[in-house]
Design a protein around this nucleic acid. Structure first.
Length: 118
DNA sequence: GGTTTGACCATAA
DNA sequence: CTTATGGCCAAAC
């Protein structure tokens, strides 16, 4: 075996050349009117510790993956994170609201209701 | 190849 | 409810 041991038991390991693609695939599975947490996606991909990378994958979302509903991905508290990029945060909220997601006064989503489950 | 950084997460105050 | 701190892991510099 080479140092390239990303494959484990038929399943790809955490992150690798196809990590971003896997993130996109997961996000695409989230239907409209529902949201998912970075940690959820990360867990699905193999480990909850890669939650941050999920963020990059969406942050660097290329035009070729424009069909990925990145706005349905929020943090585990049902809140939009975004550091500084407040403009996009508002856009994200508007998009979610137009899909049926309810935000509380503090801008928090009720995960008990809208969290997507794989 | 070490250091910094990051669309996070959990916990504490 | 909010802010601060530590931890995790990989990418970017």
């Amino acid at each position: 075996m080479s140092e390239d041991d990303r494959m484990v038991d038929g399943e790809p390991r955490i992150v690798g050349p196809g990590f971003y693609d896997r993130v996109y695939a997961m996000v695409r599975q989230v239907p409209a009117g529902r949201v998912a947490a970075y940690g959820d996606v990360a867990t699905m991909l193999g480990s909850p510790r890669v939650a941050r990378h999920v963020g990059w994958a969406l942050a660097g979302l290329p035009p070729s993956e424009a069909d990925v509903p990145w706005h349905r991905i929020i943090n585990s508290r049902g809140r939009i994170s975004f550091k500084g990029q407040t403009v996009r945060a508002e856009l994200q909220r508007q998009r979610l609201e137009s899909e049926g997601i309810i935000f509380s006064d503090a801008g928090v989503v009720d995960l008990k209701r809208f969290r997507h489950r794989w």
